[in-house]
Amino acid sequence: MANSSDTSNANGTPGPDVILSGLGIRRSFPVGERSLEILHGVDLELGRGQRVSLMGASGAGKTTLLNILGLLDRPTEGEVWLDGQSAWSLTTQERARLRNASIGFVFQFYHLLAELNALENTLLPAMIALPHVAYRNKREEYETKAVSMLKRFGLGDRLKHRPGQLSGGEQQRVAIARALLLDPPLIIADEPTGNLDSSTGERVLELLFEEQETRRTALLLVTHDHRLAQRCERMVHMEDGLIQADSSHTMPT
């Protein structure tokens, strides 16, 4: 646990260098009359700009932890701090806003909206963030940003295509553009290449790492792929609802 809690203040509040911090997280689900504990007290802290891989066998609790760290699920016990705010002491409204502004999600199955084209899917976080009039005023700004990002991702001639007309790799690139639109300080990627063939997956990953590096965004990457995990500066290994190993190493160039 070399990296945990050494940047925290004495009172348990994470320091300014910490973007995401989970403290003593437990999560149990009711199964019949008893409850089944999936996470047995996980401490995990992510520094700003850090690239961290989260590995573990199926059933180790990765997804549960990810949902909690992504503010989609409430821990039974413990605290989640995101960008200096204790997520579960906020109102649902504030938490939704925090998730909108501070986390970019990249899912295994892309999760684009089928009714929207590539550009509209990319713009979705901004549409959620702003009310009608405010969005209309800033629409051009966001559109320029989204278009240039999609062009950079090689999707310049795919702007008006619906997800159904795009390949898996293209869809995932749109999803990455969507995650990056509001420049969140944290990207959570859940097996982003799990559904892609290896060469496509490789290209998507290149793109994600490249963007992460230039923007100095923190990245929490869940993967089964050991080689992929090697390319992160820090590897966290989970087993049976606990963090078993947390190691930093210098990045291979």
Partner: peptide
């Protein structure tokens, strides 16, 4: 269902 999940993940409030 999936879209609703996506919107929530992207920061939409339940009332929204």
């Amino acid at each position: 269902r999936r879209d609703i999940g996506i919107l929530t993940a992207l920061g939409a409030h339940p009332s929204g």
